Computed example of a mutant assay.
Amino acid sequence: MGIIDKLNKDFESRVRLGIMSILLVNDWVDFTEMKSLLEVTDGNLASHSAGLEKMNYIEVKKEFVGKKPKTSYRVTNVGRIAFKEHLNFLEKLIKSK
């Protein structure tokens, strides 16, 4: 099994890479800010975040602020470990000859 086989397929999408990268350095990030940072559509962000939540990589919090719904995200410990391993394998792949 080569290094490339160790890359986590759950993070192959640029949107998922972006979500995880943003959440790794922030506590909670709300939907509107995440959408703006990644420059993606509502549906694109919703589907990718749902996939990451299903894998227990991120936590999704839905609440009301006044009468407006607010969705926020944060990385879980499982997600932090999995994403850091993915980045380590990427680094090894880049450095391999």
Rank of each mutant, 00 (worst) to 15 (best):
I19W: 11
D42F: 15
D30L: 06
V25I: 10
K35S: 08
L90G: 01
D10G: 02
V75N: 04
G2I: 04
H86M: 01
E91P: 00
K61M: 02
K54H: 14
N26Q: 06
M1L: 06
T71D: 00
A50N: 12
V15I: 15
P69I: 06
E85Q: 08
K84T: 06
H48Q: 11
R14Y: 08
G18T: 04
E33G: 03
V75P: 00
K9G: 00
E39M: 14
I94K: 13
I4C: 00
K84L: 14
V25N: 10
A82F: 02
K61I: 02
S36M: 12
H86L: 04
N44R: 15
L90I: 01
H48A: 05
F83Y: 13
K35H: 08
G79V: 01
M20D: 08
I3P: 01
N88F: 10
K70F: 03
L87Q: 10
K6M: 12
K61V: 02
F89C: 01
S13F: 02
K67G: 12
R16H: 06
V25P: 01
L87S: 05
E59H: 04
A46D: 10
N44D: 10
L90S: 04
S47H: 10
K61Q: 07
M1I: 06
T76H: 05
G43W: 11
K92H: 00
V40Y: 11
G18E: 09
K70Y: 05
I4K: 14
L38G: 09
F83C: 01
K68S: 10
K6D: 08
D10Q: 13
V75I: 15
L38M: 11
T41A: 15
I94E: 11
G2Q: 03
K9W: 03
N44W: 08
F89E: 07
F31I: 06
N56S: 15
T32S: 14
S21F: 05
F89H: 09
V60Y: 03
N26G: 04
I81L: 13
L93Q: 05
Y57E: 00
G79W: 04
V40K: 14
K54G: 07
N77L: 12
S72H: 03
R16D: 05
K97A: 09
H86Q: 05
K84I: 12
N88Y: 12
K61T: 02
N26L: 03
E39P: 00
N26M: 01
E12C: 02
V65F: 10
R80P: 01
V29M: 09
E33H: 07
V60W: 02
G79N: 02
N77H: 10
V78T: 15
Y73V: 01
L23H: 03
F83K: 04
E63N: 06
V75W: 02
E85H: 07
K70A: 08
V78P: 00
G66F: 09
I4E: 12
M55K: 15
S21L: 05
L24T: 09
R16G: 00
G2M: 03
E59I: 00
N44S: 14
V25K: 13
L90K: 07
K54V: 10
